[in-house]
Design a protein around this nucleic acid. Structure first.
Length: 596
RNA sequence: GCGCCCGUAGCUCAGUUGGAUAGAGCAUCUGCCUUCUAAGCAGAGGGUCUUGGGUUCGAAUCCCAACGGGCGCGCCA
């Protein structure tokens, strides 16, 4: 077990001995913000003392008296208002690194209780090109799935593509009247988007080009499709197939994989039953011709997603599950989807990764589902992991439906192109094929890292230069640290330094060596934080710090030119750093390179 | 109108149960490649954490109010 966890356990035991009735699970050990205080600290005794109106320094003194960490730490200090500061013994640090070098762990432990977690992300719409607005859900979801799997959870990824709904009425009309076959073969999604836009503007009564006949035609085509008309079904299937091929091309470039792609259409046969069930149980009722779920009055108005304040009083804010014309809403599909996932996968957790504008929808959805499946109370966690909008240069959010956005494929092309120019400049003697491969890994990595490193909830303005930057706090900086380590191993003709280490031979003395070694120990804490809060940016921050610690070590501590146990120890540090960088970047979905 | 989110260095952003002197990158300036890859390193300048109250031993973080911005609010997803 890692030192900080052992310290934490001892600390909780000591706190229990002093205060037998206290909940000590919140007493955590965290890395110190500044190494001058020590390596780890706890500030939890201060809040505990506060809650019990005790003197915090006295509590710290009492706990310290019962604390048994002498094998791990130097003398524990009480500081400030009641911090406990821990400084690891060199031997404890060396032991942890040696265990890692022997392959016993890589500074993290598998989750104590593995869960089955369904991740719902990406979810592009059929017949629309994927553009930069789709990148966040896709990249966030992929990195969360990789991180949760690394921690030992059973993760099921499901791409809930938009392959059903009213837009197909318009698409069918467009397909039958406006389609240009040559354009379709050249760029299927652009052509489908073109015909969709042309027809949809004629079907919107609020727009100047409104054409009532077209609107009616679209409605008829949709009904025919839903009734199983052979021609419309064939066209619909072709649209899906063409779209999926384009999605797969993008996913292939991004290295994103899904276990399943049950689109919305998959649930269509279950929607009638879903609505009937909600009606017969009295959860939904008819209102203005539509079927809706209203507040059940069990929550205070402010926390009730089915109430909204308007004109000074609380008014109903229902979730619609069936339209007046008999059509179903996305809420219905989402409800049927949860029920199905529960039935076949039995997850403890279902996580949706979408933009923040859908918060109210998910609050209502989760509330309806809980009323519908009372037996799941406390057994299923439904989570909406939301992210901020990508804004255009004008500060307005990019609209998924307007077509002027930068296509994802163009963004990736440009990323690779810029990386290729750079690698050609830096390393002109490499053959072109190698430079292309380096450019691919660097370019795609840069785009992913640019999207993962900000706090997911902040909005950001889309900028080519920011997405494609290759200097500073970017993926290439982390990949570069890894490549430098591999270069050391190549130059030294060293195969597997860690496994060749004699036990007890690890000697760390330079400040850069110690700082790097101690930072390695915090990998697991970081992975857990990412999994707990669904925030990959914590891992970006950690890896950036790790690469920085390594680079300072690299500048100050020659590896191949040193001798004896110093050389061996430095090789182990290099090897473990490379392994953590590789695993960590892997959890972000970013590849590494042996050379760049 | 009501709800959600946001306001941190010139710009873009981090900031882990409230915790110790608020940190990066970019941009600007000064050094460092005959020594394991300079996509780098060392250093400098740059802050009323929007404003005003409050809670606390301690607030960028929690509460209240104001100002400024984004989004959402019945048949799109």
């Amino acid at each position: 077990m890692l030192p900080h966890k052992l310290i934490e356990q001892s600390l909780q035991r000591a706190a229990s001995a002093v205060l037998p009735d206290a909940d000590v699970s919140a007493i955590l050990v965290r890395p110190c913000p500044d190494p001058k205080f020590g390596d780890y600290q706890t500030n939890a005794l201060m809040s505990l003392a506060k809650a019990r109106r005790m003197n915090p320094r006295q509590l710290a003194t009492d706990v310290l008296a019962r604390l048994e960490v002498a094998d791990l730490c130097e003398k524990v200090e009480i500081a400030g208002a009641g911090f406990l500061n821990f400084r690891l013994k060199d031997s404890a640090l060396a032991n942890a690194l040696q265990a890692a070098a022997r392959g016993e762990h890589l500074f993290f432990d598998p989750a104590a209780a593995a869960r089955t977690i369904v991740l719902d992300f990406s979810s592009p719409n059929v017949a629309k090109p994927m553009h930069v607005g789709h990148i966040r859900s896709t990249i966030l979801g992929d990195s969360l799935s990789r991180t949760l799997r690394l921690l030992g959870h059973r993760v099921i990824t499901d791409n809930h593509i938009g392959d059903w709904g009213t837009q197909f009425g318009m698409l069918l009309v467009g397909w039958k009247t406006l389609l240009e076959r040559a354009a379709l073969e050249r760029e299927p999604l652009s052509e489908m988007e073109r015909i969709y836009k042309a027809i949809s503007s004629q079907c919107d009564p609020d727009k100047p080009g409104y054409d009532a006949a077209r609107h009616e035609a679209a409605r008829r085509e949709l009904v025919k499709l839903q009734q199983g008309d052979a021609e419309n079904l064939a066209i619909w299937r072709e649209m899906i197939q063409l779209s999926q091929a384009q999605f797969d091309a993008i996913y292939g470039r991004l290295g994103v994989q899904f276990d399943h792609t049950y689109g919305e259409s998959f649930y269509h046969p279950r929607l009638g039953q879903t609505v009937d069930d909600l009606m017969s149980r009295g959860i939904a009722r008819e209102s203005e011709g539509a079927k809706c779920v209203f507040s059940d009055g069990t929550r205070p108005p402010k926390e009730d997603p089915f109430l909204i304040q308007r004109d000074g009083e609380w008014q109903p804010n229902p979730q619609l599950i069936q339209k007046r014309d008999g059509g179903f809403n996305y809420a219905t599909t989402d409800l049927a989807t949860i029920a199905y996932r529960l039935e076949i996968w039995h997850p403890q957790e279902i996580v949706y990764i979408t933009d923040g504008r859908q918060q109210l929808h998910f609050q209502q959805l989760f509330a309806v589902f809980q009323r519908w499946h009372l037996e799941m109370a406390g057994k299923l966690k439904l989570a909406h992991v939301w992210f901020g909008s990508i804004l255009g240069e004008d500060g307005r959010p990019l609209k998924t439906r307007s077509g002027e956005n930068v296509k994802l494929s163009e963004l990736l092309d440009e990323a690779e192109e810029r990386a290729f120019r750079l690698v050609s400049e830096k390393n002109s003697d490499l053959p072109e094929a190698e430079r292309r491969e380096i450019a691919r890994v660097v370019g795609i990595g840069a785009v992913k890292y640019a999207d993962l490193s900000p706090n997911r909830q902040s909005d950001y303005v889309f900028s080519w230069d920011k997405m494609l930057a290759l200097n500073g706090n970017t993926a290439p900086y982390l990949q570069y640290a890894y490549a430098r380590i591999q270069s050391i191993f190549r130059k030294g003709d060293i195969q597997s330094p860690a496994s060749g280490m004699p036990p007890g031979a690890l000697t760390l003395s330079a400040p850069e060596e110690l700082a790097l070694a101690k930072h390695l120990l915090n990998f697991g804490l970081t992975l857990e934080a990412v999994a707990d809060e669904y925030r990959p940016n914590f891992l970006c921050n950690y890896l950036y710090d790790l690469a920085g610690q390594f680079t300072r070590f690299y500048e100050n501590c020659p590896v191949l030119k040193s001798e004896g146990s110093t050389r061996d120890s430095r090789l182990v540090l290099c090897d473990l750093t490379a392994k953590v960088l590789k695993r960590g970047l892997g959890a972000l979905g970013i590849e590494i390179l042996e050379q760049m």
